[in-house]
C-alpha cells in the first residue's frame, strides 16, 4: 500500500481537506512516504500476530474444511442434494456464482477504472480490494465447476485439442462464461501482482528473517526501485488497467447472458446486462466497505483509510444502488406493460 504505488502526480494535496467543502482529506496530515511505509510494513513484519487473528483464522479454516466436506459429499452423491429439480435446474449454485463474481467487480473497478480516471484516493484501498476480488473469483469458480452433474468432466468446456475431436459449443453463454471468468481471474491476478512488486521489494528490504527475505526476494523479482523499473512498471500497470477496464463491464454482462439468452420467462430480458453490472459494483463496494471498516479499526489505519474513502465508496454505492432499483422497477413495469401472461 505504497502511496506512490501508481506514481501518478496527485492533482491535489492528499493531506488536505478539499478547501471550502468540508470533505475530509485522503490521508491524515503529517505523513511522509517514509512514515507511511514504516507504518504499513510494520503490520506485516514487526507486529506480533494477535490471538484474535489466530482465532479468526481457525474459524475460517474450520469453515473451509466444512466446504471441502460438503463438496466431497456433493461429488460422491450427486447434484440432487441441492434440491434442484426439473423446472429449476439451477438455484443454489448459479446464484452463488453470480453473487461471488459480482463481489469481485469492486476490486477491478477500483484498480483499473479509478486509475484511469485519476482518482488518487483509490490507492489506500486498491490492494485489498484486488485481493478480495481474487478470492471472490476463486469462490465463484467453485460453483460453475461443481454445479455440473459430472464435475470431473467439466474441463470439456475448455477448448483443448483432443483425440475425440470435440470442441466446445460456442453459441452457449456458459462457454462465454468460461472465457469471461478465466480472463477476469487472470487479469485480476496479474494486476494485483504487478502492483504488488514494489511493495514486495520493500518487505524484502525490511525483512528481519532469512526465510522472509528469500521469499519476498523471489516475489519481488529483483526490483531495485530504479527509474527504469519505475518507468516499465508504470507502463505495464497502465496497460493492465486498460485491459481490465472492459472486463469490469463485460464479465458480468456475459454472466447475465446466461439468463438473458435463455427463453425462460423472467430471464429473457434486455435489462439484465446493465442491471447485473450495476448490481455487481453495488455489492462489490459493499463488500469492500464490509472489509475496510473492521480492518481500519483493527490495524489502526484510520489515517490512511479516511472518512473520504468511506464517503466516496458510499457515493458509488448510492449511484449503483439507484441503477439496481431502476432495474427492479423496470423489470416489474415491463412485465406489466408487456401484457404477456
Amino acid at each position: 500500500m505504497t502511496p506512490a504505488g501508481d506514481g501518478l502526480v496527485p492533482i491535489e494535496d492528499p493531506t488536505q481537506a478539499v478547501v471550502g467543502t468540508g470533505v475530509p482529506p485522503i490521508i491524515a496530515p503529517g505523513y511522509t512516504f517514509g512514515s507511511v511505509t514504516d507504518k504499513i510494513a510494520a503490520i506485516v513484519l514487526a507486529r506480533k500476530t494477535p490471538l484474535g487473528w489466530w482465532l479468526g483464522f481457525g474459524a475460517a479454516f474450520m469453515l473451509t474444511l466444512l466446504l471441502f466436506a460438503a463438496l466431497s459429499y456433493l461429488v460422491v452423491t450427486g447434484i440432487g442434494i441441492w434440491g434442484n429439480n426439473v423446472p429449476i435446474g439451477w438455484a443454489f449454485d448459479i446464484t452463488n456464482f453470480v453473487w461471488w463474481i459480482g463481489i469481485g467487480h469492486a476490486g477491478t473497478l477500483i484498480s483499473a477504472i479509478l486509475l484511469l480516471l485519476k482518482q488518487p484516493w483509490r490507492t489506500s484501498i486498491n490492494r485489498f480490494a484486488e485481493a478480495m476480488t481474487l478470492f471472490a473469483v476463486a469462490c465463484a469458480g467453485i460453483f460453475p465447476l461443481f454445479h455440473t452433474g459430472r464435475p470431473w468432466l467439466a474441463y470439456w468446456m475448455l477448448p483443448y485439442p483432443n483425440t475425440m475431436g470435440v470442441w466446445p459449443q460456442f453459441r452457449s453463454p456458459l462457454i462465454w462464461d468460461v472465457f469471461a471468468v478465466s480472463t477476469y481471474a487472470t487479469v485480476s491476478l496479474l494486476f494485483w501482482f504487478v502492483g504488488l512488486v514494489p511493495d514486495l521489494a520493500t518487505l524484502r528490504d525490511r525483512s528481519q528473517s532469512r526465510i522472509g527475505g528469500v521469499v519476498y526476494g523471489m516475489l519481488a523479482m529483483g526490483w531495485r526501485g530504479s527509474a527504469h523499473h519505475w518507468h516499465r512498471y508504470e507502463t505495464a500497470y497502465l496497460l493492465l488497467a486498460g485491459l481490465a477496464t472492459p472486463l469490469v463491464v463485460s464479465v458480468h454482462t456475459v454472466v447475465s447472458f446466461d439468463f438473458a439468452i435463455a427463453i425462460v420467462p423472467g430471464w429473457h430480458t434486455t435489462i439484465f446486462p446493465p442491471y447485473f453490472v450495476a448490481g455487481a459494483i453495488y455489492s462489490g463496494f459493499a463488500m469492500v466497505l464490509t472489509l475496510a471498516i473492521p480492518i481500519r479499526a483493527i490495524y489502526g489505519l484510520e489515517d490512511f483509510i479516511t472518512m473520504r474513502h468511506l464517503q466516496n465508496m458510499a457515493k458509488v454505492m448510492l449511484v449503483t444502488g439507484l441503477i439496481v432499483a431502476y432495474g427492479y422497477t423496470i423489470e416489474a413495469f415491463i412485465a406489466w406493460y408487456g401484457a404477456d401472461k
Binding site: T77, G78, I79, G80, I81, N84, N85, V86, P87, G89, W90, H147, T148, G149, R150, P151, L153, A154, W156, M157, V166, S172, L174, D258, A262, I263, V264
Partner: peptide
C-alpha cells in the same frame, strides 16, 4: 457421453421434457 450436466438445456426447454439424473 458428452454431457457434463450443466442442466442449461433443461432450464431453456419451454416444454420441460428434459430429465436429469440428479442422483444415481
Amino acid at each position: 457421453n458428452r454431457c457434463v450436466g450443466t442442466r442449461y438445456c433443461s432450464n431453456n426447454c419451454p416444454y420441460k421434457v428434459r430429465r436429469f439424473n440428479f442422483l444415481l
